[in-house]
């Protein structure tokens, strides 16, 4: 049984009553215990919507979400609250997700107060102190306010708050993209250490290829609301099949000046998410697109034992 299982999930937002944003279109994926599934995509790809759906912070238009075998969409409010102790989220902007008027110890302790109200206050305090230590913050930080901390320290508080209820799943929505490079490395290391120690599954949402490659066991590449390629990350990075995956990997600029840059092959900008697309979502930007790419629906189909690609000619030369 998977830790998290999304099946044929779609999400449409209505904007101003007249326009529909097609944020997610028929997405299926799973996260297993102890593994990191990275969802990579550019802005507007639907990856953040996906993270929020996984925790039922928003409801899908169609499809189902199961957490440890439980149908999340069928749960009443009380059951959902119980389950949320086991499935947590870490946000991109640490400062904006921390209450500026609460001290660090109270921020980290709040989930315990909500999920385990019967735990004696002294036990709660010692648990908070232990978690604050676990994320590498000095004990005296517990009395500080978020505004007195650096960005990296703020994100450590966000991580402490997420792990204090001992969750089995964490959704990480761009957890390091607002941090400076040298601080980013510290946080990635911390997240990896905590995963080894606590065995949590991570749904790691990011647009940064260097980061995704470093953290993930499997990846799902998203474009315009759809998963276009998925598989073990080593294999997807070594041998990408979808033209978009190839373009995305080619767009990551190597830090080694002697490494040759592959040519940029996509043209133009992504189509607006308010347009309903039939056929392949990359058509128009794709270097190997042809008429039949838009004549039929193009869906994720198995490519080999553990990879799937949404392209009628995966691995086409020139893509």
């Amino acid at each position: 049984m998977s830790l998290l299982e999304l099946t044929n999930v779609s999400k449409e937002f209505s904007v101003g009553g007249t326009t529909t944003v097609y944020a997610l279109d028929d997405v299926s994926l799973t996260v297993n215990a102890g593994e990191t599934l990275a969802v990579i995509g550019e802005s507007g790809s639907g990856k953040s919507t996906l993270g929020r759906l996984a925790l039922r912070l928003i409801e899908p238009t169609r499809g189902s979400v199961h957490f440890q075998g439980t149908d999340m969409l069928a749960l009443p409010a009380a059951g959902l609250r119980q389950l949320r102790a086991k499935a947590q989220i870490i946000f991109q902007e640490p400062f904006e997700s921390l209450n500026p008027r609460m001290r660090v110890a109270d921020i980290v302790g709040e989930p315990l107060a909500i999920h385990q109200p019967k735990t004696p206050a002294a036990d709660r305090r010692s648990r908070v102190a232990r978690v604050i230590d676990q994320v590498g913050l000095a004990p005296e930080m517990a009395r500080r306010f978020p505004g007195e901390l650096s960005g990296g320290q703020q994100q450590r508080v966000g991580i402490a708050r997420a792990i204090v209820t001992e969750p089995s799943l964490i959704v990480l929505d761009e957890p390091t993209s607002s941090l400076d490079l040298s601080v980013r490395a510290q946080i990635l290391q911390l997240l990896a250490d905590l995963q080894t120690e606590l065995g949590m599954g991570y749904l790691f949402i990011s647009h940064d290829i260097h980061t995704v490659r470093y953290v993930s066991d499997r990846i799902a590449v998203m474009y315009r609301g759809r998963v276009v390629e998925t598989g073990p990350s080593e294999r997807v990075f070594a041998d990408p099949q979808h033209p978009y995956t190839r373009a995305l990997l080619a767009a990551a600029l190597p830090v080694d000046p002697d490494q040759e840059l592959p040519p940029a092959r996509l043209v133009g900008d992504p189509v607006s998410p308010t347009e309903k697309v039939s056929g392949c979502v990359l058509y128009g930007r794709c270097p190997v697109g042809e008429d039949r790419c838009v004549q039929n629906e193009v869906r994720l189909t198995p490519f080999d034992a553990d990879r799937a690609v949404a392209c009628i000619k995966p691995g086409a030369p020139g893509s």
């Binding site: 490079l181 490395a185 510290q186 290391q189 260097h210 980061t211 490659r213």
Partner: peptide, 20 residues
């Protein structure tokens, strides 16, 4: 040196800075 080593690369340990 720290900046260059802080770029995540598979197979390389992440070397990071402490402090601010």
């Amino acid at each position: 040196q720290a900046l260059v080593r802080a770029v995540p690369r598979p197979g390389h340990p992440l070397v990071h800075l402490t402090g601010r």
